[in-house]
Design a protein around this nucleic acid. Structure first.
Length: 254
DNA sequence: CCCCAGGGGTACC
DNA sequence: GGTACCCATGGG
């Protein structure tokens, strides 16, 4: 428990609301409540101070944002996004929860992904506090029926989640190995799972497996990329650059 | 009614 | 290598 930690180059609200994590909710006075692993977390940022019981590792506070941003290609659109949304970081999330979350994401809006993940926790997770549940373990979802999963608004994604749960529960997914693998191979390995294509594989690898170069391209990123030079490389931290471009594109005109 | 959403699988060319 | 269509469901 760290009552107060000093931070620089970090924007908590931006990071939690940038569409990479789905279990955070904003409360009064700048507080955010969420579940990380088996813990109920409450955090808020006041200036350069983080209050609450958040884990600095989860927020990637050991990473140097200036050094990461320095690797970005010189693109006006990207530079504007970095300046405007400075402090946005890529979190270190749990791979299993990230896999299920993004399996649930296909052709869904972020608000609906949150509803699905919350329904899964409520139905299959363990109670932590009033109306707060852990994200269900792989073995628990592996025992669920497809209809039970569909009841959580998963729709056609239900069999994908079920297959993923069984694969992980049976030890057929080695997260530690995926972390160590070269990105291209890690991607191919994850894409063996039904319902996991390149986009979802990159989400899992970026948001939970430390692959900073993994760069998920969704409809928002396709639009954002059209504002950059044709064929420009986003570099070794493409995933971080992607997070700025994605957020900027979503904020455009809104 | 319409179009769209942090997609992927399949059939087809 | 592309592209069309389908999948289920809710927001706007």
């Amino acid at each position: 428990m760290t009552p107060h930690i000093r931070v620089s180059d970090f924007n908590l609200a931006l990071t939690l609301e940038s569409g990479q994590a789905f279990r955070w909710r904003r409360e009064a006075d700048g507080w955010y409540a969420g579940v990380v692993g088996q813990r109920l977390i409450r955090v808020r940022q006041v200036g350069d101070r983080i209050e609450g019981n958040g884990d600095p590792h989860y927020f990637s506070l050991d990473r140097s944002l200036p050094e990461i941003v320095a690797t970005f290609p010189p693109e006006p659109t990207l530079a504007t996004a970095v300046r405007r949304y400075w402090g946005l970081r890529v979190l270190r999330q749990d791979p299993w929860e990230t896999l299920v979350s993004f399996l649930s994401s296909s052709a869904k809006q972020i608000v609906q992904i949150r509803q699905i993940v919350e329904a899964l926790a409520r139905r299959f997770g363990e109670p932590l506090a009033e109306s707060v549940y852990t994200f269900p373990e792989p073995a628990v979802l592996a025992r669920a029926t497809e209809d039970e999963l569909r009841a959580c608004r998963l729709g056609f994604r239900a069999p994908y989640v079920l297959a993923a749960a069984r694969a992980v529960a049976e030890g057929r997914v080695d997260w530690d190995l995926l972390r160590r693998m070269e990105l291209a191979r890690a991607r191919e390995t994850l894409m063996v799972l039904p319902g996991v294509g390149r986009k979802i594989a990159d989400c899992v690898l970026l948001f939970s497996c430390g692959h900073d170069a993994a760069c998920p391209i969704d409809v928002w990123m396709q639009r954002a990329m059209q504002r950059l030079r044709r064929g420009v490389s986003l570099g070794p931290y493409a995933g971080w650059a992607q997070q700025y471009l994605f957020h900027a594109e979503r904020m455009r005109g809104g």
